[in-house]
Design a protein around this nucleic acid. Structure first.
Lengths: 334, 334
DNA sequence: GAATGAATTGGAATCGATTCCATTCTTTGC
DNA sequence: GCAAAGAATGGAATCGATTCCAATTCATTC
């Protein structure tokens, strides 16, 4: 009969139940300094009985941190980004912070919506793998720090952590050439993506410098389009002798096509992928790849964000992480 | 000179700038009903100029929804759960809701912390894959609906969506027996986990009914322990002739061990896994598995949550989703 | 042109926790 | 035993958006 609505108990409910003032309850919640043992016990009992939890909304209204950061990635299902999300999650946990996860699906419009939603929630910081058409103005008014990863933001002022896509593609192509391949097909998916462009450029620069023919199919998305693209280059007089895949799903698709067509790897055609994947070393033959340090990249980005939030300067630049050539046999190494 | 701190603009700042009252600005933000075209324009201009975004904190303080749901899973890096997270994310987007993602790492203590943090943020609902020791009392006072997936909550009142673990394990074992295997080793990792228990039970019931020896190694975690376990059963007089893996990483580990030991699949030993994985059909031979409908399970859970949030009744029961036996050849099928 | 109703508009209370400040209650020192 | 320092406590303003209610403007009709 006392209370009409069975709503969430508030600080004032605790205060009344314990027979103390609101300020005292607040003190108890925040460490209990300057509170007598007796009232401390009374208040804590009241909190237990009511199942009280302070409202983060009310707190952040008074200017407190929200203890929440935002994370926008293209897709949660993508193994690269889910690994990154896990690493960021981990760092956030170390700082007692939750992660608001949003997926942009590489669509600028959706990215904008998600950023707006995050701003309204007054997050303490944002980690972002921006779409190719991210809008710098969006974050102009934002009062929280932003760190990009995997791709840079059009506005150069945003600190960014990413892999050495250009160098990795160069190393990959040089590796193929070193192993005697000369007609190398480069297949890629999202042409407008920053990472794709860098990788294609790295590949092309090496090919050009070596005086080899530049062969590319850069609009390949799924298994079917991969097969179509490969078939175009696996027959005729001008057959290719190696494939360099710009991203990891394509490596798997290319592997499947080659198996299906009964083309020996690496005897007839070598295969090299950008980005390592779970079972690359369990396939027949194991696939050589350029490995990006996903976890390190994500952790670094997260750590930079928290440092910035604590007003430590982290610089404005772009941090490029070294990639690694992992040789497993699909390019005729020994 | 007008404002001292360059803090986030508030509704009142917009009101002053547009020369109107706070209530009017509020009306503009929320659809602009009963506002003259003239003031509408003025207010919208002010909003633009200041880069104003309403504070979700202040809104939810007045009892509004937070447009945020919580999601607690053991690990974001686990492909099963990241696929689930992606599906839930998708449903949330359809309802213009964000997802607060938290990882429990299967630790009850951490799960409790995360739930507390979510309660403080006054989420509208929670989707949870509970640890084996989840505490029912935690959510007693919670004023938001909760849906579990993949595993049930100790408190039976929480609606749950999960796969038919028992039936799947039965089907798997029957399949192996049907194909002539008689000494089947069951390997599993987390004994206390609900899913593991159901699967082991399903397997055992069939083995017992068939009068075959029940062989199990249920404390296998990584590649090394898998190898040790298998080696114990691959030598001697009492060799096994098939392996049933309780979860997907183990299937991959077992595959690796068999390859390394040069044991022919399925000629010498058959291999069958619970839970499908990305490259199961690209391995040599392709691996037969029990496939769980991950996306369907996660979507269903999310849809149930949103229905409950809209006060539609969804019942209290447990929804069991059918699993599917995918035969690929690793059990000697033709 | 006045009256009636409808459309706009602003004032002020409200949500829940924090915090400054004033007040009351203990100590402690001399 | 009394003053001064210090600990414990409550009152009330504050944060930002919503919403009821009252007040004002506007349009319409006789």
């Amino acid at each position: 009969m006392t209370k009409k609505t069975a709503s969430v108990p508030a600080l004032m409910d605790v205060a009344r139940r314990a027979g103390v003032g609101a300020a005292t309850v607040s003190r108890v919640i925040n460490g209990g300094q300057n509170v007598s043992t007796k009232t401390l016990a009374k208040v804590q009992a009241a909190i237990q009985e009511l199942g009280y939890h302070p409202s983060q909304a009310a707190r952040s209204l008074k200017g407190a941190k929200t203890k929440t950061i935002g994370l926008i990635i293209p897709s949660v299902a993508d193994p690269f980004f889910s690994a990154a999300a896990a690493a960021i999650q981990e760092v956030a946990l170390e700082h007692e912070t939750l992660v608001l996860l949003a997926a942009s699906d590489n669509q600028p419009a959706r990215e904008r919506e998600q950023i707006t939603a995050l701003i309204q929630r007054r997050i303490d910081g944002l980690i972002l793998a921006p779409t190719y058409a991210a809008e710098p103005t969006m974050l102009q008014h934002a009062k929280f720090p932003v760190i990009c990863f995997d791709r840079p933001f059009p506005d150069k002022a945003v600190p960014t952590v990413l892999a050495d896509n250009y160098g990795g593609a160069k190393a990959a192509t040089e590796h193929l050439i070193r192993n005697g391949y000369e007609r190398i097909l480069c297949i890629g998916g999202d042409a407008p993506l920053f990472t794709s462009q860098k990788r294609v450029k790295g590949h092309r620069d090496v090919i050009r410098a070596a005086g080899l023919p530049y062969l590319a199919e850069l609009n390949v998305q799924d298994y079917l389009s991969t097969r179509a693209a490969l078939d175009r280059h696996l027959a005729g007089r001008q057959k290719i002798d190696a494939i360099f895949c710009i991203k990891n799903e394509l490596t798997v698709h290319a592997y499947r096509v080659l198996r299906e067509r009964r083309i020996a790897i690496p005897r007839s055609v070598a295969l090299l992928g950008f980005d390592d994947f779970e079972l690359a070393d369990a396939l027949e033959p194991p696939i050589s790849v350029i490995r990006q340090p996903v976890v390190e990249i994500a952790r670094k980005a997260a750590e930079m964000l928290f440092k910035t939030m604590e007003h430590e300067s982290v610089g404005k630049g772009m941090i490029t992480m070294r990639v690694e050539l992992v040789t497993r046999g699909s390019c005729g190494e020994q």
